[in-house]
Design a protein around this nucleic acid. Structure first.
Lengths: 97, 97
DNA sequence: AAATTATGGTTTATAATATAAACTAATTTA
DNA sequence: TAAATTAGTTTATATTATAAACCATAATTT
């Protein structure tokens, strides 16, 4: 009845990041930091974990002389997100059947 | 944009328990254990936390000579659950606006 | 040009969490 | 009466999330 919730996504900040990347397709570190209201340290760690899980790709370049970390979601990331949405909805909707 | 997710409810087992109690209104420990596929230890701890948060009420009685732990949701619990559902939906729906 | 501040992060330390394992206490069964 | 079952609780541990501290380079100020 209650399916296991993907522990990679069942984390407030990682879920927010993936949620953003699903719609945006590509985003900078600073953009994600602003949108999620997170600290740089926390975001850095969670981006690493999402990368290790294969849910996002991270590209490090330079922009206007400053380092730039670009994140984009992978197919696995999209699939995992969609599954998470389905799974958690069984917890949220009264139609727990 | 992304609201804080109530840390009491943003936990797989506690969310499952509250989700059940919202519809069932009252349930035994053993019923919750079966429905959530949890271990007794884990469930015991999470029930304590939900009780401390004021989200559920716990009544301990005896039934057929065995101890029986009855849980029912409180008004605060219902409100918190409804808020959590609203809040996490902003993470789940692409209409992040 | 030296010192200071800002940018864009990473690494480390810590506190909180989730979970399983071990335990308790009473009851039932063999 | 010994073993197993029921219904939990407590304790220990491993994982997490998070903030604090740190690092390197660039830009700015004096």
């Amino acid at each position: 009845m209650f399916k296991e919730l993907d522990p990679i996504l069942h984390s407030q900040l990682r879920l927010a990041v993936v949620s953003l990347l699903v719609s945006v397709k590509e985003a900078e570190f600073t953009y994600l930091k602003e949108q999620t209201n997170s600290t740089a340290g926390n975001l850095s760690v969670q981006i690493q974990k999402l990368k290790e899980a294969g849910y996002i790709e991270v590209e490090k370049t330079f922009k206007d002389n400053y380092p730039q970390t670009l994140c984009k979601i992978t197919k696995a990331g999209v699939h995992a997100f969609e599954k998470y949405v389905k799974d958690i909805n069984e917890y949220l909707n009264q139609k727990n059947k």
